[in-house]
Design a protein around this nucleic acid. Structure first.
Ligand SMILES: [Zn+2]
Ligand SMILES: [Zn+2]
Ligand SMILES: [Zn+2]
Ligand SMILES: [Zn+2]
Lengths: 140, 140
DNA sequence: ATAAGACTGAGAACCGTTGTCAACTTGGTC
DNA sequence: GACCAAGTTGACAACGGTTCTCAGTCTTAT
């Protein structure tokens, strides 16, 4: 039976207040900074649980680490993420959904799953980039 | 200046003979099995070099590890990979390419990059799966 | 209040990957 | 061919994110 604990609440609520995708470690740091410390192992466990319950989305950053985000919609969707500041836009991929199953079918594959993520520079970071390409960090 | 060594040749040639995506460690094992041993660090270095030279494709498996494959075409493309046996089909994604830049533009994002991979069960593995869903391994 | 068992957290373990550095090639030069 | 500068190798250590362990703690049903 699932129990309600201070730790789970802290993880869940804090995650809800962060609009960008964050790694388990970043969230752990944030919790600590807020004086709401939770063990790192618990942060990992809780995020996994939230993810497999479909309450949060998981994304694998280019360096391989996992990042989590509480998205507005629970239905399947994709993300457009700013590489410099992390700003994230939720995208529904009707076009890609159709494309994916079409491609799968045409090759006789079944049980198709797809990974589709978009990365770029958001409007603000694009402006900075145009002004001086060197200063635009590639944070994620 | 880049030099030609026994090790680089072994890695490059062996990779060319393996039709599936393989991890650095799998390739290292294969080389050892073929009596053509190459140090693990060298396998990693060589694969990185081949990848950044655009000679091989890199894919991140669901467990996070990197896998490499010498694809037939050097132009940008995507993959449809069998989760059970690794069979891989190269896909060109004209539809997704267009979709990705359209979505990026419509949100004012620039320098869009995309990650698009399809996973499923190939025709043979689909047949096994239909016969007995329990026996179909989920190797990758 | 009590007890069963779910949960926590410090630290160890894990595992893919990268760094280190002395010894070993390779390839151009004489 | 001999020589040398510098690219390359590989055993091993180190790294970083994630998972495991397990004794102690807390939640919840009764
Ligand atoms: Zn989302
Ligand atoms: Zn989708
Ligand atoms: Zn390819
Ligand atoms: Zn593409």
């Amino acid at each position: 039976m699932q129990r309600m604990t201070r730790q789970r609440l802290a993880v869940s609520e804090t995650l809800a207040e962060i609009p960008e995708f964050v790694s388990a470690q970043q969230l752990h740091d944030e919790l600590t900074a807020r004086g709401d410390a939770v063990g790192l192992a618990t942060v990992y466990r809780t995020l996994q649980a939230l993810a497999s319950a479909g309450e949060v989305d998981v994304l694998r950053l280019s360096d391989g680490e996992l990042a989590y985000r509480r998205c507005a919609r629970r239905e399947h969707h994709h993300h457009l993420v700013c590489r410099a500041c992390g700003t994230t836009v939720e995208i529904d991929g009707l076009t890609v959904e159709a494309w994916a199953s079409l491609v799968g079918d045409s090759h006789g594959f079944t049980r198709i799953e797809h990974t589709v993520e978009l990365f770029g520079l958001c409007p603000e970071c694009s402006a900075e980039d145009a002004a001086d390409p060197e200063t635009v960090g590639e944070a994620r």
